[in-house]
Amino acid sequence: MKLLTRSEEYVLLAVWRLQDEAYSLALMHELSKATGQDWSLGSIYTPLERLGKRGLLTSYQTKPTAKRGGRPRRVYQLTAMGRKELLHTRKVENSMWSGITNLTLAGVTS
């Protein structure tokens, strides 16, 4: 199976973290906070859709609210496959990092 991209990985993690609150705006907020970068709504939608197509996420709609102009909210959830994929990614990352001890900022002028 194809490895997750970094943004996909983060989106999946954020969905897991937020659980029942995992809808696009909250995800954007969470991701911006965690990465220290601005995430636009568009940059959230793309991985969400892709992950949905790959079967790593499902979603359901909540009741419409006035705050949203009478429109529902789409809340995302990890599927079993999604969880498996996240764990796999972590394993890959761990193995990539394992044994690397001498990577320091020494000698890097910034």
């Binding site: 809808y23 709504l41 939608y45 705050k67 529902p72």
Partner: peptide
């Protein structure tokens, strides 16, 4: 839902 997101 997307429109809702933007509205919110």
């Amino acid at each position: 839902t997307g429109l809702g997101d933007f509205q919110e």
